[in-house]
Nucleic acid binder design. Structure first.
Length: 933
RNA sequence: GCCGCGGUGGCGGAAUGGCAGACGCGUUGGACUCAAAAUCCAAUGAUGGCGACAUCGUGAGAGUUCGAGUCUCUCCCGCGGCACCA
C-alpha cells in the first residue's frame, strides 16, 4: 500500500471539473432544489485563511445536502467594485479594472485549491457590465417607484487631498489617514433610497425568519422603533411653540425643563428674548464644531446652557419651566427638542443633578419593601439572626431564618412604621427573643438577594456567624455608608432618604393631578389626549445614502438637463458604462467629471449642456441582489427570470461574517422587499436562515496582521498537509454557528493530517473474504455516528461532527478486521469534509462513479441502542456508584438494586432514606434525611 | 455611557438540569531504533493517600432544585457593536 500523499488533490480537482461534477442544473429529476449561500469575497488580491474558513467549511454543508439528495446551488462570485482598487490606482498608478481582474484570476486559482463544490459557470462579478447593467436597471425601477430621491447629506471632506473620505479613512483623532489633514464636514446633494418606508415591514417580517435571536435583535435595534407622542410647549408671553417627541408622555407632569438641540432653528428666532445670548451663541458654536470623536471622549459629561429670559409652559400643569440648550439632544432625531423628566430618564437625571434642576417623581415604582430585624439567638446568646420580609421570600425550612409573606406597599407607607409592625409581630411570635435593631429599605425585586450576598465577608467585629449566615445590624444611615453594601441598594436607600430618585420602569402615577393612581401604561394615552398631543412612531433607521464620489463603482444611471433637473437614463442605453479616460488626481470633483468620453456620450444622446451623474453607487447595492443573479447569471433580458427565482429562492442558509449583521443584511432585505413590491422577485424575504461565523486568529491569539507577523498563508498550509487536512482542521477548530475567536494551532492541523493518514491506513484492515460477522458494539456505534454527524452538519456544528468521525475511526482501528461496507460508510461520512482523499480511497475500492454522487447513509434508530443501560447512583446529590443492567428491568427493581450496592450502603448507613428518585435509563438519586440541627 | 455576546484543564473546545473536561493538541513514561524522526501503547484537572479511595473544582457571591457549567439574581473581567435616539 502506498502512503497517503495529498498530491492526489490536484488530480481530482481536474477530474471533477472535467466531469462537470458540481454543475448545478436549474432542476434535477426527483431532487428538491436547495440554495445555500456564502457572502462573496472582495477581490483584495490574495486568499487568506479567513477566506478558507468562509468557503471551505460551508462547502461541507453543501456537499452534505447534495448527498442527502438535494439539487444544491452553492455559488461563488466577486464583490468587485470598491475603494481598495481606487486607492491602488492613486497610489501605484494602475488601472482599477486591471488591478481588480488580475486579483480575481489569482484568487480564482486559489479558491479552486480549496476543493469546494462551487459551480463556477454561475460566477457573478459585480463590476462586469453584464452585471451592473442590471444593478442600474434595478435602481431605475426603484427610482420610478419613488424610492430614490435627491437630498442633502454631509460627507467627510479632506481639504488637502480635495476628496471625500470614507469613515474608514478618517483616523480616530479626526485627521485623514492619507494626507493627515483635519477632516472637515461638507454638505453635498446626493442620492438616497427610502429604506425608512420599509422600516415597519423590515421589523415585522423578522418574526418569520429562523435567524439566531441575537442577529434579529441587532436588526431590531438598528431599526429602532419607538412609539410615543408629539407634545407642544408654549413659550410664555410669546407666540412661539416648541414641539417635543417623547416616548414617555405619561411622565409629562414630571417635565421640569425643556432641552433643545444646538441645531434647533427656534433658538435664533428667540435671539432677542434670550438675555444671555452671547453665552448661548458661544456654546452652540462650540457644540456644533465638535466632532463625533469629541462627543465620545466626553462620555457622560453633559454640557448645556440655559436660555435665560424665556420660559416654557408645561401643558399638563401650566407650570413655567426653564429651557436649556444641550448637545446631548440631537438635531436629527425626533423634533430636536425634548421635555426633560429627570426622575424617569437617566440622561435627564444626570443633567439635572449637574445643573441643580428640580426632580419630580410622577411614576411610583411598585416597591418591594425589605424589612430586617435583628434578633439575638435564643440558643446561642451573643449571636444574631435576622428576620427579613420581602416579596416572594419563602419560609426557611432550616429554622428561625427568614419567613415569608409578601408585603406590597404603596408609596405612602412609612417604612419605619412597617418596621415597627414587624417588631410587634416578631415579639408575638418569638416571645422572649430580643430585637436588637431593625431597619428597612426599599429596593426593587431583583435586589432581594443582595442582603445575603453582601454580608458574607464583612469585618468580623461587626458580625457574628450563625449557621453560615452572617448578620449585620445596620440602620439606613449606616447602610448607605457601608463599604460592602450593594450600590443599587445604597441608591435605593439614598433616594428614599432624599425623597428623590431615578426610576425608569412602569408604575403607578403620582403627582399628576387627576391621573394619580392610574397605571403609567394607561396614562401614556390619556395624558397625550389631555394636552392634545399626537401619537407618533419614530424609527432610528435613516434613509440609505447611496452616492459615492468615487470612480470604481456602478455609475448612477441619471442625467441632468442644463437646468440641473434629473432624468433617468432610458433602458436602451444601459449599461451606462464606466468611462475609462478618467483622472484620479484629486481636484475636488468626482473622478467621472474628468471624462471627456462620458461628456461626449451624454451630449450626443441627450443634447448639448446635458451632463451625466458623476457619482457612483454604494457597493452595498451591488451586494443587495447578487444572490438573485446566481439563479440566472447569463440572462440578458432581466436581472433573473421569475421562473428560476421561484425555483431557487429564498436562500435556505446564508453564512457570513458578523460584521454584516446589520448593514448588509438590512439593506439587502430592503432591496429585496422593494423588488418584491415591483413584482421582480417572488419572495418577501431573501434569506430564511442566517449563521454568523467566527474569526481565525494568529498562533499568538491576536488578529492576523502583517504588523504582528502572525499571518498564516493558506497556500503554504495546503502545500504542507493538503487541502483536506486544512478543511478538516477548520471544521474542527470550534463551532461554526457562533462568533468565536479561534487561534491557529500548528499542532492541531498536524492532528487532522494524522487522522486522515489513519483513515488511509485503515484500508489494510478490510476483510479479504466475504465474512459478514460484525462486532455488535460496532454496529451500535455505526448508527450513532451516522446520526450524530448528519445532525451536527445540519446545525453547523462541524467540530463535534469531526469528533464523532474520529471516535468511529478509532473504534475501527481497534478491530483486527473490518468489513468493506464499514469502511465505505466511513468514507461517505467523511467525504464532505475531505473530498479528495475519500475520492481516492473510494476509487481504490473499484467504484466507477464518484463518492460525491453517493447518497448519505441512513441510520436505524433501533440499532443505535444497546441492550443494557448504565445506571448512575447518587446519594444526596453525589455520585457514589453505577451499575449496568438489562433494559427490561423495572423501575422497582432498579431502585432496589441501587440501595444494596456496597458503596451506596456505606453512604446511607446511619441515615434515614427520605426518598428515591429514578431518571429513566440514567440514574437513581437517593436522598437521605438531613441530620436534625 | 448604552446594547449584544462570552468566561470550563497547559491550549482549541465537549456536555436534552443527571458521571464536568468528549475529540484533538501539548506534556510525561514506555515499545520500536545504533540513534533520531515517524509510528504504536499508556498516563495526563488540582490536592491528599502506597492503595482502594476521599476532598475540592466550570470568573466571584447568592438563590431555586434530590441534583446546577447549564435556570434566576447581583458583581467582576474580556470581546464586539454604537447613532448620548428622549
Amino acid at each position: 500500500m502506498q502512503k497517503y500523499n495529498h498530491k492526489i488533490e490536484k488530480k481530482w480537482q481536474k477530474q471533477w471539473e472535467k466531469d462537470g461534477l458540481y454543475k448545478t442544473p436549474d432542476t434535477a429529476a426527483k431532487k428538491e432544489n436547495y440554495y445555500t449561500l456564502v457572502e462573496f469575497p472582495y477581490p483584495s488580491g490574495n486568499l487568506h485563511i479567513g477566506h478558507w474558513y468562509a468557503f471551505a467549511v460551508p462547502d461541507i454543508f453543501a456537499r452534505y445536502k447534495r448527498m442527502q439528495g438535494h439539487n444544491v446551488l452553492f455559488p461563488i462570485g466577486f464583490d468587485a467594485f470598491g475603494l481598495p482598487a481606487e486607492n491602488a490606482a492613486i497610489k501605484n498608478k494602475v488601472d482599477p479594472k486591471k488591478w481588480t481582474y488580475e486579483n480575481i484570476s489569482r484568487m480564482t486559482e486559489q479558491l479552486k485549491s480549496i476543493g469546494a463544490s462551487f459551480d463556477w459557470s454561475r460566477q457573478v462579478i459585480t463590476s462586469d457590465p453584464e452585471y451592473y447593467k442590471w444593478t442600474q436597471w434595478l435602481f431605475l425601477q426603484l427610482y420610478k417607484k419613488g424610492l430614490a430621491y435627491r437630498g442633502k447629506a454631509v460627507v467627510n471632506w479632506d481639504p488637502i487631498d480635495k476628496t471625500v473620505l470614507a469613515n474608514e479613512q478618517v483616523l480616530p483623532d479626526g485627521t485623514a489617514e492619507r494626507s493627515g489633514a483635519v477632516v472637515e464636514k461638507k454638505e453635498l446633494e446626493q442620492w438616497f433610497l427610502k429604506i425608512t418606508d420599509y422600516a415597519e415591514r423590515l421589523l415585522k417580517d423578522l418574526g418569520e425568519l429562523s435567524w439566531l435571536e441575537e442577529i434579529k435583535q441587532s436588526q431590531r435595534a438598528w431599526i429602532g422603533k419607538s412609539e410615543g407622542a408629539l407634545i407642544k410647549f408654549q413659550i410664555s408671553s410669546l407666540k412661539f411653540q416648541i414641539e417635543v417627541f417623547t416616548t414617555r408622555p405619561d411622565t409629562l407632569f414630571g417635565a421640569t425643563y425643556l432641552v433643545l438641540a444646538p441645531e434647533h432653528k427656534i433658538i435664533s428666532d428667540l435671539r432677542l428674548q434670550i438675555s444671555n445670548w452671547n453665552e448661548v451663541e458661544r456654546y452652540i458654536k462650540h457644540a456644533l464644531a465638535k466632532k463625533d470623536i469629541d462627543r465620545i471622549a466626553e462620555k457622560g459629561e453633559k454640557t448645556g446652557v440655559e436660555l435665560k429670559g424665556i420660559k416654557a409652559i408645561n401643558p399638563a400643569n401650566n407650570e413655567e419651566i426653564p429651557i436649556w440648550v444641550a448637545d446631548y439632544v440631537l438635531g436629527g432625531y425626533g423634533t430636536g427638542a425634548i421635555m426633560a423628566v429627570p426622575a424617569h430618564d437617566e440622561r435627564d437625571f444626570a443633567f439635572a443633578k449637574k445643573n441643580k434642576l428640580p426632580v419630580r417623581t410622577v411614576v411610583a415604582q411598585k416597591p418591594v419593601t425589605h424589612v430586617v430585624a435583628f434578633l439575638e439567638s435564643k440558643q446561642r446568646p451573643g449571636t444574631f439572626l435576622f428576620q427579613q420580609r420581602d416579596k416572594g421570600m419563602p419560609t426557611n425550612p432550616g429554622g428561625i431564618g427568614l419567613f415569608g409573606g409578601a408585603i406590597e406597599v404603596g408609596e405612602t407607607i412609612f417604612l419605619q412604621s412597617l418596621a415597627r409592625e414587624l417588631e410587634e409581630e416578631l415579639e408575638l411570635k418569638l416571645g422572649e427573643q430580643k430585637i436588637v435593631s431593625t431597619c428597612a429599605f426599599e429596593a426593587n425585586e431583583s435586589d432581594r438577594h443582595i442582603w445575603a450576598a453582601h454580608i458574607r465577608d464583612i469585618d468580623e467585629s461587626s458580625l457574628r456567624l450563625h449557621e453560615g449566615k452572617a448578620i449585620v445590624p445596620l440602620t439606613l444611615e449606616e447602610a448607605i455608608v457601608h463599604p460592602r453594601m450593594n450600590p443599587r441598594v445604597k441608591d435605593a436607600i439614598n433616594a428614599y432618604l432624599l425623597g428623590t430618585r431615578l426610576f425608569i420602569g412602569e408604575g403607578t402615577m403620582i403627582n399628576s393631578g387627576k391621573f394619580d393612581g392610574m397605571e403609567s401604561e394607561e396614562a401614556k394615552e390619556k395624558i397625550t389626549a389631555f394636552v392634545k398631543g399626537k401619537k407618533e412612531t419614530t424609527y432610528k433607521l435613516r434613509d440609505w445614502l447611496i452616492s459615492r464620489q468615487r470612480y470604481w463603482g456602478c455609475p448612477i444611471p441619471i442625467v441632468y438637463d442644463p437646468n440641473g433637473k434629473a432624468y433617468p437614463i432610458p433602458e436602451e442605453h444601459l449599461p451606462w458604462t464606466l468611462p475609462t479616460d478618467v483622472d484620479f488626481t484629486p481636484t475636488g470633483e468626482p473622478p467621472l467629471a474628468s471624462s471627456k468620453e462620458l461628456k461626449k456620450r451624454t451630449e450626443k444622446i441627450f443634447g448639448k449642456g446635458w451632463r451625466s451623474e458623476y457619482d457612483t453607487m454604494d457597493t452595498f447595492i451591488d451586494s443587495s441582489w447578487y444572490f438573485l443573479r446566481y439563479t440566472d447569471p447569463k440572462n440578458d433580458k432581466e436581472p433573473a427570470s421569475k421562473k428560476l427565482l421561484k425555483q431557487w429562492m429564498p436562500v435556505k442558509r446564508y453564512s457570513g461574517g458578523a460584521e454584516h449583521t446589520t448593514m448588509h443584511l438590512l439593506y439587502s432585505r430592503f432591496f429585496h422587499k422593494a423588488l418584491f413590491d415591483l413584482g421582480i422577485v417572488t419572495e418577501k424575504e431573501p434569506y430564511l436562515s442566517r449563521m454568523n461565523r467566527g474569526i481565525i486568529l494568529g498562533t499568538d491569539g491576536r488578529k492576523m496582521s502583517k504588523r504582528w507577523g502572525n499571518v498564516i498563508d493558506p497556500d503554504t498550509q495546503v502545500k504542507m498537509v493538503g487541502a483536506d487536512s486544512v478543511r478538516l482542521y477548520l471544521a474542527f477548530i470550534g463551532p461554526y454557528n457562533t462568533v468565536g475567536h479561534y487561534p491557529w494551532d500548528t499542532g492541531g492541523i498536524a492532528g487532522t493530517r494524522r487522522f486522515l493518514e489513519r483513515v488511509w491506513k485503515l484500508q489494510e484492515k478490510i476483510a479479504k473474504t466475504e465474512n459478514d460477522t460484525l462486532n455488535p458494539e460496532l454496529e451500535t456505534l455505526t448508527h450513532q455516528t451516522i446520526k450524530k454527524v448528519g445532525e451536527d452538519i445540519e446545525n453547523f456544528k462541524f467540530n463535534t461532527a469531526v469528533s464523532a468521525l474520529m471516535i468511529f475511526a478509532n473504534a475501527l482501528e481497534k478491530e483486527p478486521v473490518i468489513l468493506k461496507t464499514q469502511y465505505e460508510l466511513l468514507l461517505c461520512l467523511l467525504a464532505p469534509f475531505a473530498p479528495h482523499v475519500t475520492e481516492e480511497l473510494w476509487k481504490g475500492l473499484l467504484h466507477t462513479s464518484s463518492i460525491h454522487t453517493e447518497t448519505w447513509p441512513p441510520y436505524d434508530e433501533k440499532k443505535m441502542e444497546k441492550a443494557t443501560m448504565t445506571i448512575v447512583v447518587q446519594v444526596d446529590g453525589k455520585v457514589r456508584d453505577e451499575f449496568t443492567i438489562s433494559k427490561e428491568t423495572t423501575e422497582e427493581e432498579i431502585k432496589k438494586k441501587a440501595q444494596v450496592l456496597d458503596k451506596v450502603l456505606r453512604w446511607v448507613e446511619g441515615k434515614d432514606i427520605q426518598k428515591i428518585l429514578y431518571v429513566q435509563g440514567k440514574l437513581v438519586s437517593i436522598v437521605t434525611k438531613r441530620k436534625h440541627e
